[in-house]
Design a protein around this nucleic acid. Structure first.
Lengths: 188, 188
DNA sequence: TAGGAACCGGAGTTCAGGTTCATCTTATGG
DNA sequence: CCATAAGATGAACCTGAACTCCGGTTCCTA
């Protein structure tokens, strides 16, 4: 399958890192609206160098989003290690949203019309889905989440929150509403 | 201020309508990704004619979104005429979302990063905000919505639902979760 | 029903931004 | 320390899509 794969030359490895760092920061701030030239400039490299390491803009973006999904997976794994099921769920939910808040590229990717491409890529490379599934199930089984709550519902509410991160909306308030429900119940 | 404003020539008026219809339909399907040439073709007109009636693509899009906001306002007004406060609220919420579901341009506009430009335009030209405010307040005062529910919360949940209309998410399920809350309450 | 203002059409222009490639530079193994 | 393959560079190129422009057409009024 794969060729002998001689390791990258030292400068190449360094430059690759620079590109990833620069792109990560810029994409996080402004999504895919950033231009390749900007990334090159911030990385103090020529555009050509970006293209030596990544086939095109999409590939670079994919690398960045992949990174984020890895971080999310670590987060989920950590949450899953919490013993209390509800705390585990809340930790995951808040950690996920906090991270999403800091990363516009991630949000746009998951909210944009090209989904579900990204989730599929994430599923191939990480266990995020499985771990989330487990965390959700634990909370539901423990009777702390409505019994029919599923991992898909996690995606649903997560998308909703992210949609309220651009502009003036207060997404924390939104999460509160979701957790409690907006309809008044005389009992309880 | 305004010039004598001779009325449009018959063909011009007709063509303007064609443009609006074509653009409305295409924008609704695919958001602002549609090209001016496509709109012209569907309207059976030259591109030049589009530009005679609308300064640029943004202006055309604004006209379309304005139309939608007018429809939304009519909807809100109708809901406000329902006597039961909860029914009024539900009618507005579902009507709004059903309409949003059918109009990608509207969704993208409200979810995109250029918000709150659109809401401001809407506020200038329609009473949507005021009427919604009233409907929400009525439901809250009647004790059918959590007491601290505000018109901003309407925007919040509405955005969340629209974010789940692209792709595979089931936004009706999402609304259910919001209305009921996802946390299990032993009491009630 | 003629004159002319208003309007239309769509090939061509412009421009922004992604991508290439001929040439120069540098790391590395011997 | 050299030879050389790997890597870097950025001006030039290409593409696609918004927009312009002017010769031809149509409506309207007197």
């Amino acid at each position: 399958m794969s060729a002998p794969e001689r390791p990258l030359r030292a400068d190449a490895r360094r430059n690759r890192e620079s590109v990833l760092d620069a792109a990560g920061e810029l994409f996080a701030q402004r999504g895919d609206a950033v231009q390749m030239d900007e990334i090159a400039e911030r990385a103090r490299l020529g555009v050509g160098t970006l293209y030596r390491h990544f086939a095109d803009k999409q590939a670079l973006l994919a690398a960045i989003i992949g990174r984020r999904f890895e971080a999310m997976t670590a987060l989920a794994r950590a949450a899953d290690e919490t013993e209390d099921p509800w705390t585990a769920f809340e930790t995951l939910l808040h950690g996920y949203l906090e991270a999403a808040q800091a990363d516009a590229a991630f949000r746009f990717a998951l909210l944009g019309p090209e989904e579900p491409r990204w989730s599929d890529i994430a599923a191939e490379k990480t266990d995020f889905a499985e771990i989330t599934e487990r965390v959700v199930r634990r909370a539901a089984d423990a009777g702390r989440l409505r019994a029919d709550f599923s991992a898909q519902d996690f995606t649903l509410i997560t998308r909703g929150a992210m949609a309220n991160m651009t502009g003036t909306g207060d997404w924390r308030r939104y999460v509160t509403l979701l957790l409690d429900g907006i309809r008044h119940r005389p009992g309880s």
